[in-house]
């Protein structure tokens, strides 16, 4: 077990294994997102109340899922880095933050656009909306904090701590719709009950969610490999690799 973790923590080993895994995640992401988009946009039936504006759900929900999952992943990576000093975890966390911020923005933007025809307003200081906005600022905080130090180790530790502290916002986002039920509707999916939508509506949503997760994994693997090239630039295997893949 420990040997495996040490191997996983080795940048060289990680570089190799992620290079082999990432094409599969790219392929899965492209196929799932294309199928989910076509199904969700053109084939799923219109909602009996919202008409076709409900099709925004197929980008809104996957983006919101990712926005939160990426922050949790970042906090877990930060914890691994702080406790076991595994550099790969910190590299991955650094590469996740901008994608998380982008996904939070997509969730907020698509939600605002959806709100206009559905709620009659693009914004309200509803608990879910506000806690998502805080999540966006937490992402900005993590990114800015990492850039604010000249020493890489200080930057990594500060960003890890902020991610670990900021993760408290995630359960607040999750339960905000139950604790303060003001505007945003409760969760669409739950583990314990069947979705309140017909299959032809939730199947494309599930496909999109899976596609977005594959996209996140593929991008993170690719960018973490780039980060290895950046940080381990003086290592012999990195220099040899740069010559090979020209």
């Amino acid at each position: 077990m420990w040997a495996f973790i040490h191997k996983l923590g080795s940048p060289k080993w990680f570089y190799g294994i992620s290079a082999r895994l990432s094409p599969w995640f790219w392929a899965a992401a492209v196929v799932l997102i294309l199928v989910g988009s076509a199904w969700g946009l053109a084939f799923a039936p219109a909602d009996y109340q919202q008409g076709n504006s409900f099709r925004i759900i197929y980008v809104h929900v996957p983006a919101a899922f990712l926005a939160q999952s990426i922050f949790v992943s970042m906090a877990v990576a930060g914890f691994i880095f702080m406790v076991w000093k595994i550099k790969i975890a910190d590299m991955a966390a650094a590469m996740m933050a901008p994608l998380g911020a982008a996904m939070t923005f997509v969730a907020l933007f698509s939600g605002a656009v959806w709100g206009v025809p559905t709620w009659g307003t693009w914004w309200m200081w509803d608990a879910r909306l506000t806690s998502m906005l805080i999540l966006l600022f937490l992402y900005f905080g993590v990114i800015a904090l990492r850039g604010a130090f000249t020493s890489r180790d200080s930057a990594s530790r500060a960003a890890s701590v902020l991610a670990m502290v900021g993760v408290i916002n995630i359960p607040i986002i999750k339960y905000s719709v139950d604790w303060w039920y003001t505007l945003h509707q409760p969760a669409t999916f739950s583990v314990t009950s069947r979705p309140a939508m017909p299959l032809e509506m939730w199947a494309p949503l599930l496909i999109m969610v899976l596609g977005f997760y594959c996209f996140f994994i593929a991008v993170t693997l690719m960018r973490t490999r780039s980060e290895i090239l950046r940080r381990e630039a003086s290592k012999r295997w990195v220099r040899e690799l740069a010559e090979e893949v020209s």
Binding site: S37, L41, A46, G51, N52, S53, R55, I56, V59, H60, F109, S110, V113, W114, V116, P117
Partner: peptide, 12 residues
């Protein structure tokens, strides 16, 4: 999109 084209296409 049944009159909701602006919203759907902006979000997508």
């Amino acid at each position: 999109m049944g009159g909701h084209g602006v919203y759907v296409w902006a979000a997508w």
